[in-house]
Design a protein around this nucleic acid. Sequence first.
DNA 1: CCGCATCCCTAAGGATACTG
DNA 2: CAGTATCCTTAGGGATGCGG
Lengths: 114, 114
Amino acid sequence: MKDHSDLACTNVHSAIQDTLYVVNGKWKLLLLSILINEGTKRFGELARASGISPRILSKELHELELNQLVSRQVCPTKPVTVEYSATPYAGTLKEVIDAMIRWGQRHKQKLVRS
Amino acid sequence: MKDHSDLACTNVHSAIQDTLYVVNGKWKLLLLSILINEGTKRFGELARASGISPRILSKELHELELNQLVSRQVCPTKPVTVEYSATPYAGTLKEVIDAMIRWGQRHKQKLVRS
DNA sequence: CCGCATCCCTAAGGATACTG
DNA sequence: CAGTATCCTTAGGGATGCGG
């Protein structure tokens, strides 16, 4: 008999929902992917690389910071620049991100073929 | 030198966004997880298992059907029942779903510890 | 350059009631 | 039982302009 007890299913369901809650919306996983794969970036660079408007970008980065997935470093240049990096903890999301990249690529191939 | 050409990055970015577009929202990955891990379910069973209200559930299932991720089978019982199953193609999302389950479980552990 | 404030619009999602 | 219709609330996200 497979493990379909209520408890096990509930845990699986809530685990997915917990993850979705942290990385909700159109942008968070994209931003993490950029920071993980391309390293530290400044605010403006992220805005250009992602196509996100400054208001949304600011909000998303702030939420990612609250979840300890990105770190923010202010550089005392003139005028100031701000650098964002993926934290080590964000690395634990890499397998999610990579799986999504692979699936998106395969899915596009499928659409072309059909 | 790492492969950071514009083209490669663009492909990675759009692959993520393509995936996010297909499985957007709070519910689609949860529904697929249930159907993949627990097998075929009727509309009412899905509603109870997921906690989704009928209107939303109907809409989400319809969108998943359009993307060929679930199949819908009407059974000529009295009154009719309708069974939903994950398609073989939905199996290709399993690595995404499993990665999210693992991450959600680890993340909850982390929150408990800190 | 960073990123907040304001304003606005659309999309997502929930509650309830109802019909085939 | 399945799922649509109606109504409503909230969240997501875009544009622009200003201040540090």
